[in-house]
């Protein structure tokens, strides 16, 4: 091959790569590509981040209903198991240090994740399994 052709080929391949990457960005922002539980609300972390491939997890665990995790809030401040809240981060109702008597964020995660794993006898239950190095 001529050197000119190699340059052309490399340039077009780079363009394709750049385009693919460009189109991936919005996907990476959605739950399809969530690989870890969001932890920004905590500030500095005591423990390593928790792996959580949103869609793959729910498929493997056979969870059909979004409301199992994304419950809503009723008028009188109770947990709403009818109307789901997917899209709202947990921290929008569960502050890290709540002043309104709500369940704090860490406890909300631990109770939701660990309670189900313990009940099913499957999935991580020990600290180091979720907060893996």
């Amino acid at each position: 091959m001529h050197r000119k052709n190699i340059v052309k080929l490399a340039a077009s391949m780079l363009t394709i790569l750049a385009l693919v990457a460009f189109y991936m960005v919005p996907v990476a922002m959605s739950q399809d590509d969530m690989t870890q539980v969001p932890a920004d609300a905590f500030g500095t972390l005591e423990r390593p981040r928790v792996a959580f491939a949103h869609d793959a997890h729910n498929e493997k665990a056979g969870i059909e209903e979004c409301v199992v995790c994304h419950h809503g809030k009723t008028e009188d401040g109770k947990m709403d198991k009818e109307n789901s809240s997917e899209g709202d981060p947990c921290s929008s109702c569960h502050a890290v240090k709540p002043t309104d008597g709500a369940t704090p964020l860490m406890r909300a995660y631990h109770r939701q994740c660990i309670t189900c794993h313990e009940a099913k006898g499957a999935g991580p239950v020990a600290c180091g399994q979720c907060h893996a190095k």
């Binding site: 239950v125 020990a126 600290c127 180091g128 399994q129 893996a132 190095k133």
Partner: peptide, 14 residues
């Protein structure tokens, strides 16, 4: 050992 995740984590924690 459990905290530093030396060895199988679930076993060590148990």
């Amino acid at each position: 050992l459990a905290y530093h995740q030396v060895g199988p984590v679930l076993l060590m924690t148990t």
